[in-house]
Computed example of a mutant assay.
Amino acid sequence: MPTADNAPRRDALNLRIAPAERNLIDRAAASLGVTRTDFILGAARRAAEDALLDRSVMAVSPEAYAEFLARLDVPAQPNERLRQTMQSPSPWAQP
């Protein structure tokens, strides 16, 4: 159990945010059963990891790249789950 002497150090991060954005974040955090802080930290961490991973270089053979492009050109096949997703309202647009 951490005590005051060995507790990990945490820094404060202050943000200015519009009330509508804060409310959206609060609703999303509540829907996941986490605190606003945990929700924001998780989202920021994922965004930071994605930003860094986007800077990664992947080398593949010309054949593998051609196969990749061919698969991207294949249209998505309609299915019930896709149909439901496309017909449901966006979570951020709901009151």
Rank of each mutant, 00 (worst) to 15 (best):
I40C: 10
A7I: 10
M1G: 14
A12R: 07
Q94R: 14
P19T: 09
P89C: 06
S88F: 03
R10H: 12
A28N: 06
R10D: 03
L32Q: 14
R46M: 06
R45M: 06
T35I: 07
T35F: 05
E63W: 02
A29K: 03
L41N: 13
E63I: 04
D73C: 06
E21F: 02
Q87S: 15
A43R: 01
D50G: 04
L13M: 05
M1T: 14
L53W: 03
T85C: 06
R27Q: 07
D26C: 06
Q94V: 15
V57I: 11
A93E: 15
A64Q: 12
D5Y: 13
E63Y: 02
P75V: 04
T37L: 00
A28C: 12
A47S: 12
R45V: 05
N6Q: 08
P62K: 06
I25Q: 02
E21H: 10
L41K: 13
A7E: 14
A59V: 15
S56K: 04
N14A: 15
E63A: 08
I25M: 14
R16P: 00
D5K: 14
E67P: 00
Q84V: 12
D50S: 04
A51I: 01
A48E: 12
Q77W: 08
A70L: 10
T85K: 14
S61W: 08
E67Q: 13
R16V: 04
R55C: 02
R46T: 08
P62V: 07
D38A: 14
P78G: 11
R22T: 08
R36M: 07
L24S: 08
G42A: 05
R10A: 09
Q84P: 03
A7T: 12
T37A: 15
A47E: 11
R55T: 04
T3P: 05
S31T: 11
L69R: 11
V74T: 13
A43V: 07
N14T: 13
L52M: 11
A51K: 01
A20R: 08
Y65M: 07
F68Q: 09
T85I: 13
L52D: 11
L69K: 09
I17Q: 03
D38I: 02
P62L: 07
A48T: 13
V34C: 11
A29Y: 05
T37S: 15
E49K: 02
R55I: 02
R22V: 05
V34Q: 01
L72R: 09
